[in-house]
Design a protein around this nucleic acid. Structure first.
Length: 424
RNA sequence: GGAGGGGUGGCAGAGCGGACUAAUGCGGUGGUCUUGAAAACCAUUGGCCGGCAACGGCUCGCGGGUUCGAAUCCCGCCCCCUCCGCCA
């Protein structure tokens, strides 16, 4: 959420930012409501001031044994007026908020302007896509041959886009989780947390999933709780409503959690394999940082995610998202795309974003500058470090051999009982 | 899930219809004193909204209500503690 004062004073900036994203926001309506609200507020506050003074006088009169009947009558009338004015202000507040919560964050100046992903800009590549001297198989075929991925039974247990991992498949999944968490906690300075997997509406609103992405989330029937679509939600909400000390910044957290997405509107996309699932595992990194350093922190965060892929020996590229592809709450976002032979292309495996103060304002997360000064909003960032399911797919495909077996990347072997090869 | 107790400023804690314009203590900040520090003493002390400002308003878990007036009374909700039940 943007600050109302900022929107009021920079209407053209806000309008352009929304237009660059292909969104239209009823800014003129908002500004008109704002004008009416402020006029009304001046009136109601003046009346409240008189009301308070009058009531104080009644108290004094009564203590002195005087007659307060007339004043009491007058204050009664004033009270009614105030109530009706307050109702109007509340109504304006609600209508303004309904507009304000749909206004997206302002993209950073370094973000390429364009309405869709064709304007995304490739920043760098790492590694060489493997050249197979045989016909490589997609991971869903490899996984079934090796009896480590069972797509049919996943569907039987839940529905389509749920998968059962078996034996070495389940071990590989778990090994990746542990490898990534160890890397981020031991070498990148993150504190590991294991948060709730259900979150309430307030938490979902704070990070920007609500109201926009309501249809993409699983909801509990009898409780107002949502299954988290990403650990970003519970981990960012760790500090909701808190004011941190300046010397507590930056704070780095990482978490492994399952994630749940209904993926409304993606029918027919990535229908095979592990790429698009309703439930998937992810190691997520979340940062709370000083506003002055958030874009540097984004570079570091992205580097932390890249390190995962480098150690696993998976070829990837880094893409900066254009304004049109950027998510609602983000000011800048890098996607890491891993090489997938079955797609003959790079496929998103991590998304690293700086939300500047957009989430912090919604979540009311501030810091108190050392010494003097008013508290300010922190900047929040997060990035996948990285998506586990897609990593499994990438490893199976990039490390496959002509006999259908798969070489285990060296860094994972300590996590997999020193296994070097996955074979039948 | 049931019964009881409780949620007050950074913390502790009083208040239980009208000087609460929230006592007091601790902590924080500034100062006096001191070679320096401690102690003592004096002053100050959050957040949000409107306003160029002066200033005004809101804020005692949250939301309603009663009243001229609510931290205080009533209703609903949330959270915490104790005991019981259930349970990995």
């Amino acid at each position: 959420m943007l600050e109302l004062k900022f929107v009021r004073e920079n209407a053209d900036v806000v309008r352009k930012a929304a237009a660059d994203r292909g969104l239209e926001v009823p800014l003129d309506d908002l500004l008109e409501l704002d004008r009416r609200r402020r006029a009304l507020l001046a009136d109601v506050e003046e009346k409240r001031s008189r009301h308070k003074k009058g009531n104080r006088e009644i108290g004094e009169l009564m203590r002195g044994g005087g007659d307060a009947a007339a004043l009491r009558e007058e204050m009664g009338g004033l009270s009614e007026e105030i109530k009706s004015l307050e109702a109007e202000v509340d109504d304006l507040d609600a209508r303004m908020r309904d507009i304000l919560v749909w206004i997206p964050n302002i993209p950073h100046e370094s973000v390429p302007v364009g309405l869709d992903e064709t304007f995304n800009r490739e920043e760098r590549r790492w590694g060489e896509p493997p050249a197979f001297p045989f016909q490589p198989l997609p991971h869903w075929e490899l996984g079934e041959q090796l009896d480590i991925l069972d797509f049919q039974r996943g569907v039987k247990i839940a529905e389509s886009r749920f998968t059962l991992l078996k034996g070495t498949g389940a071990l590989l999944e778990r090994a990746l989780v542990n490898f990534m968490l160890d890397l981020h906690t031991r070498e990148h300075g993150y504190t590991e947390v294991f948060p709730p997997i259900l979150a309430n509406e307030e938490s979902m609103f704070s990070t920007g999933q609500l109201p926009k992405l309501k249809d993409d989330m699983y909801v509990c029937r009898d409780d107002v709780l949502y299954l988290i679509p990403t650990a970003e939600v519970p981990v960012t909400n760790i500090h909701r409503g808190e004011t941190l000390r300046e010397d507590e910044l930056p704070r780095y957290y990482c978490a492994y959690t399952p994630c749940f997405r209904r993926e409304a509107g993606t029918y027919g996309k990535d229908t095979k394999g592990l790429i698009r699932q309703h439930q998937f595992n992810k190691v997520e990194m979340v940062k709370f940082v000083h506003p002055e350093s958030s874009f540097e922190e984004l570079e570091k965060l992205t580097g932390n995610a890249e390190e995962v892929l480098r150690r696993l020996g998976l070829p990837y590229r880094v893409v900066v998202l254009s304004t049109g592809d950027l998510s609602f709450a983000a000011a800048k976002c890098y996607d890491l795309e891993v090489w997938l032979p079955s797609y003959d292309d790079y496929k998103e495996i991590s998304s690293c974003s700086n939300f500047t103060d957009f989430q912090a304002r919604r979540a009311d997360i501030r810091f108190k500058p050392a010494g003097k000064g008013k508290s300010r909003y922190v900047h929040t960032l997060n990035g996948s470090g990285v998506a586990i399911g897609r990593t499994v797919a990438a490893i199976l495909e990039n490390y496959q051999q002509d006999d259908g077996s798969v070489v285990v990347p060296e860094v994972l072997r300590p996590y997999m009982h020193d296994m070097e090869i996955i074979s039948i």
